[in-house]
Amino acid sequence: MTRTSGPAAAEAMNDERKAALARRRRTTFSRWAADTGWRHLVTVAILVFALVPIVYVVSAAFNPNGTLSATSLLPDAFSLSSFERLFTDGNIPFARWFANSMVIAIPAAFISIFVSSLAAYAFSRFRFTGRRPMLLFLLLIQMFPSFLAVVALYLIFGAIGDHYPVAGLNTKLGLMLVYMGGALGVSTWLMKGFFDTIPKELDEAATIDGAGHAQIFFGMILPLAAPIIAISGILAFVGTMNDYILASLFLTDRGEMTLAVGLRTLVADNAPASYFGVFAAGALLTSVLTVTVFLSLQRYIVSGLTGGAVKG
């Protein structure tokens, strides 16, 4: 570097520093773009795809007109009339549908998870004849989900209804029994995988302290496995809520329907056009429930989905 003196030199130095700075800024920007920028771009593109239908439902639910033709992606007017109709229109017993879904799905999820965790405990902690065949059989029976046997279920519950009208076709109890029938299955495997990770030494320590097998299960294993049980319960609950095939067959009285069956009648071909807004409002209210549950338990869901399943 040649040595120069005076203000001119100082200025040249200044320029050089500026250029270097600009160069550095440009490289950091391009580095940022290569490193993180594209990530934001891709994510935002996918988010747009994810959000369009959701925004559309919100827009439709608050649309004062309520018809499909008057609904656009972004709302141009705001009204609660669809929500009002949801609870006042005598032809749309939304509150009852909602209650029916809860009355069916919550006990069904609760009982099936409880029963499933009992079995998972046996598979995880005891060695008995027929253990392996039973586990494999559970895998096989999963390939035959209950809705494939829908014809048989329909006939069986027709016959049950002849003797026990409370549990036949067109009753909530009957449908609940079907949902509980699938208790042993995926969730048993999932929970067994998790129970296996709880060290056996804990059981032994508890046994020495005088705990019986029931105390070990209820007092120790269940609390330790709370996250996986919560996840299995939620997945069972959401799965039951979303079932259409069995619910549509079992529940035909308008007042007895679940949300899935009932809301569908609002967008059937013969439903009035203005029911679309009412449907969207109902869908939105249903979503509030499931979305809250999901977002609040997000952390567990991620580990629950991968952890147990990958372990197989």
């Binding site: 239908p53 959701i54 559309y56 439902v57 439709a60 959401v238 809520m241 979303n242 259409y244 949300l259 899935a260 809301l263 569908r264 967008v267 449907f279 969207a280 109902g282 869908a283 249903t286 979503s287 499931t290 979305v291 549950v293 999901f294 977002l295």
Partner: peptide, 10 residues
């Protein structure tokens, strides 16, 4: 997280 039956109808 949205109820799938409803979103299919949407």
């Amino acid at each position: 997280a949205m109820p799938s039956f409803a979103m299919i109808l949407v």
